[in-house]
Simulated assay, not measured.
Amino acid sequence: MSSIEKQALDLTAHHAVTNAIDPQGALAGSATGKVLFITGASQGIGRATAAAFAAAGAKSIYATARSEQGLQEAREVVKEANPNTDYAYMSIDVTDAMQVSAAVDDCVAKFGGVDVADANAGALGPWKKLAVSDPDGWWTTFEVNVRGAYHVARYCLPHLIESAAKPQEDGAQGGHLILVSSVGAQLLVDGASDYQTSKHTINRLCEFVHSDHGAEGVKCFAMHPGGVATEIGKSMPEYMHAHLNDPPELAAAFAVWLSSGQADWAAGRYLSANWDIKELVSMKARILEDDLLVNRLRARW
């Protein structure tokens, strides 16, 4: 947990799935009847998220990523978590609007809609100071992280609005959009301008989704997934690897919790998978009253 997070909320940090967010514990059945559309599902956090939603009872998983082999492997993981969960996939590049649009259309054609969308695909280039950075590489990181998330939001939102308007089998509304952010969005580390700027932008994009479509029932969250030793995570400088001490299942379980209806009051905000859920909920009044966990410029005169 960063110093900025501690100043906002003094919460216990967890580095393993607790019962409060366990898809087979407190959240068992919370995804019943729901359709999940997810990007970056071929490995790591994305694959774990698909499995977690299946374990929580999801009706269908529509998985996307660049690696077709990884998506086929993810199908087996989903089947193991819940053999009753339907699974379909499409290999896409999230920076291509038409490819994302086609995948969303195929998901709707196969499964009837989208109840939860998870923009999980991400990129992280070599950490270099601006004066020696590679322009194409810098922008590629931004394109994948921001443009990719925008595409998921843009093409899933009409279906999420429809989902939010209809009752779900478990009584909870649908219409949840999860944008995978990072604690890096709150930090300023030399050499990480592409990644940290893009994740800071994700937080603001989440706020705009809430501002534009919250009244239509969409609940959007910018989620820090914890420090996970994914391929992206391990591409950070070696001195950062000590912070990669969370399993991908933690972020996956937290995503299920975010879409369970229990976090709807915090829509439009940045939330961390490491935070203790009971403590977070106990601070609901303070968070809303002081407008915490959003991008704001504060000054004293």
Rank of each mutant, 00 (worst) to 15 (best):
A123S: 13
E231W: 13
V132F: 13
Q43V: 11
V132Y: 12
D93G: 00
P247H: 01
H243G: 12
H241G: 03
D246F: 02
A164S: 05
A266T: 04
D10F: 02
Q43G: 03
A41E: 01
G214D: 12
A273R: 02
A299D: 12
A253K: 02
M223T: 10
C220L: 06
P23T: 12
I178F: 09
D290M: 03
S60F: 11
S91Y: 09
L124R: 12
D290F: 02
M1N: 12
G148E: 06
A63N: 00
A229F: 06
Y155K: 00
K199R: 07
L157S: 13
E5T: 12
I232W: 11
W275Q: 03
S260E: 01
G33I: 01
L271M: 10
D290I: 00
L130P: 04
H200F: 14
A164M: 08
A48L: 04
G44S: 13
F53W: 01
S181H: 04
K278D: 15
A20S: 15
C206M: 08
T49W: 05
Q186Y: 04
A65R: 07
M283W: 11
P135Y: 02
D194C: 10
V108K: 02
K219S: 10
D290K: 13
G46S: 03
A103W: 07
R269K: 05
L36K: 08
A51I: 04
K234T: 11
N245K: 13
S260P: 07
E80M: 10
V183L: 14
N82H: 04
L187V: 11
A55K: 05
A165L: 10
S133G: 07
H14R: 03
K34M: 06
A8S: 10
A253V: 11
T85C: 10
Q24I: 15
V180E: 14
A28C: 09
H159S: 01
D86P: 00
G113F: 05
L124Q: 14
R298K: 11
A81M: 05
V94Q: 03
W127Q: 13
A229L: 00
V108G: 06
Q24D: 14
R204L: 14
K278C: 08
L258C: 09
A192P: 02
S260D: 05
S2Q: 10
A131Q: 10
A299F: 15
H210W: 14
P23Q: 09
N203C: 09
D170A: 11
A252F: 01
H14A: 06
N82V: 02
Q7G: 15
N19E: 11
E5Y: 01
S101T: 07
W301I: 11
Q72K: 15
G33E: 06
A185M: 07
W301Q: 09
T64V: 04
D276E: 02
L157D: 12
K199L: 06
L27S: 05
S282H: 08
V294S: 08
G25I: 07
G226W: 00
P83T: 04
N245S: 12
A242T: 09
L71W: 01
G175P: 03
A255M: 14
Q24K: 15
N295R: 13
A263E: 05
F53H: 00
A285D: 15
